[in-house]
Design a protein around this nucleic acid. Structure first.
Lengths: 226, 226, 226, 226
DNA sequence: TATGAATGAGGATTCATTCAT
DNA sequence: GATGAATGAATCCTCATTCAT
């Protein structure tokens, strides 16, 4: 069942094998339900070796989170051209994101489901990554807002914050919503056969960009007085 | 510690005490880390009684999920006027949703974090609720689309799906995105001091309604040819 | 092999059974080599019950030390008449001591061998008891010194310390030596067939009270007829 | 940390380094708590080399005991002049003993604490050494007795045992007591700041040679000026 | 209705020990 | 002569679950 038993590998290689196995098991069973026994077996290695290299279940899980977080952000970064217009950057980033989550469902489960559910220590680890992404999205939103400056309602105000209707908290909320929607769609795309990364990205772009566009146009939805 | 020890309560009351305790512990510790011992203690009851009434840890957790799911959907339903216009319904529903999740953080944690992380059996339980909400949102989207029917591009088509540009999967994706964004914002609002349910709802309405509005207007964002 | 399996005992009884087993195993195997498994088996009980009642191996060992220390000091105290002359008190105390250590070899091993060898926490536990005994002996030595006051060289000094030749550290050293000798003789008596508690006590009285020098002078201390 | 890593040492040297490390670790952590890993690290050597040279943990511990036992008896022997009077021999021997134990606390811990606590095999090893010392002390006691022969009560008996009041067991007990007192005082002196080897020896000489009774008579044994 | 007493099963972790180079 | 790589076997401890009353 486990990996083919190859003996005497250099440490670095074995460590990757172990992380592979761990991500798989943690992603499928959950942090607590995962047993070090199973992880070792899937890694094709004895349990003591796992401890020798990775110290403890906690450390192993942290290592998984870090590796997967790094892989995900790297994938997104690699998909984006830094100097493209904001909508293009978002589109590219989302495609990269959905592609990666579709190709690494266990890693995505580790990040999105498991890490946030098993203690602040682990949660903090993902939060760091998430904040990086939220910051990236926030920047895109602001860039888009700046691009929309010629709009009459905005033209007049040349300072910062760009728009009184877009205070910091509001922008943070928008970014949060967008990221949350993306995360949800990733699960949905993985669970719904026939939905490609491209389609998921298109759906979200439609949803978000058109919405944000209107926002920038100064036509925000306004709550009833109630 | 735990509930005051009162003897000989009617079964229904005792059961609620147990579920209260269980939701609290499951929500805070997670399904696996929660111990029946602690739950019984917090409930102010002996462990065998918990088993007598609720059978097993699994059943207890399921009961928690059901109760909290029911409470949440009931709260949302209670907040919405069925015959109001779609945007009003969405606005009311979101406010009810954010209010409830803010007031029942442990219940929300059970539904949003724990139930989805510990096996398909539990996940299915939330999925049912989620689908109900997604269906509700889907309906609102379609209602909005219908309301936009006078629009030239849509007028001509009288069947279902209403619009060739809005096939079923697309609408499902949009609803999914909206719900996902709402879920994320609930966490964000709970974690960010000073963000009220109303603000969270407004943020999401801005984000979503304006976007959907544009969509209905036939100005969808279109992906670059790449 | 273990105790007869009797079910459903009140907690206090079971706890004593567990301590009995633990003292036996700890005394024979040593703290670290003793396994909770074996202790549970010898106690005729499942392992979880041991943990339920006594928390951890450490706590269990501490409980053993305390119980045995208490039993030993109680035995010595019970053997001594508080108002008898010093030599009589010493004689009685030693007999009680050697009798007890002979009858509870495992308890004695726990106190004398194991507790002192496995970490300061445990050592401190015995040290408390030992200091009590050393204090008792110190008192006897001082009492004897006072009784010897009529001696010309001592008569003249009526203050404290009674004798410039017996400063505090010196007396402490003497008491330490006596107690150490007693401890050693307890092991020796247990290991040497045919040596009774009475003989061990007599040997030590001779050694300590009369001194080897006096012994040579043919004036050995002789035990009262009792 | 650990010894400086020097490569390619002759076997004998390496072995001593290992024993040094082992005595230190065994003395401080105890036999069972000591790990071969730590010993190897402190010795500045890889674990397989330890096994290559010393076979097993058991053998390593035995080697430690032997080396330390030998060192201790050698130190005592070196301190004693074989043809001096008995009291002088005892005095010198004790001083050498207390000096050595003070200078080699880890070795002393191995002999006095660890070796006796972890199984008969090791205990036997120390017992051998102890018996040698007890025999030496026994001889001194007998020598002293012979020196006291002119005493009326002893003169008449020319056989062995020299004195009906000093049968073999009795003498053995006295020697045992003296050795036990010495061992205890060694611990006490090591633990009590400001107590020198000389003072410990004097205390024990007073105690043993003169006896508490004589002490009270104001005739304490006094160390030669040396 | 309610519980004190009890356990089977399993999980994380460590350690002495050995290959293969 | 020396070591990085690897493991079988225990050990402590916890937990969901059930009797017997």
């Amino acid at each position: 069942m486990g990996a083919v038993k190859t003996k005497r590998m250099p440490r670095a290689v074995r460590e990757q094998q172990m992380l592979d196995a761990a991500v798989r098991i943690f992603g499928r069973r959950g942090y607590m339900a995962a047993s070090m026994d199973e992880i070792a077996e899937v890694a094709g290695v004895s349990k003591p070796l796992v401890y020798l290299y990775l110290n403890s279940k906690e450390d192993l899980f942290t290592a998984c989170i870090r590796r997967e977080a790094h892989a995900l952000t790297a994938a997104v970064r690699a998909g984006v051209e830094p100097h493209a217009p904001a909508d293009r950057q978002l589109w590219d980033g989302l495609r990269a994101f959905f592609t990666h989550t579709a190709q690494h469902p266990d890693g995505w489960a580790v990040l999105h489901l498991q890490a946030r559910t098993h203690g602040d220590v682990f949660a903090a680890e993902v939060t760091a990554m998430r904040e990086e992404i939220v910051a990236f999205v926030t920047q895109l939103i602001l860039a888009a807002a700046r691009a929309a400056l010629p709009h009459p309602r905005l033209r007049s105000c040349g300072g910062t914050p760009i728009d009184p209707d877009l205070p910091e908290t509001e922008v943070a909320g928008l970014a949060e919503a967008l990221v949350g929607a993306a995360e949800s769609l990733a699960d949905w795309a993985n669970a719904t056969p026939g939905v490609t990364a491209r389609q998921a990205a298109a759906t979200l772009m439609n949803f978000a960009w058109a919405g944000l566009g209107n926002l920038m146009d100064g036509r925000p939805w306004s709550p009833p007085v109630s």
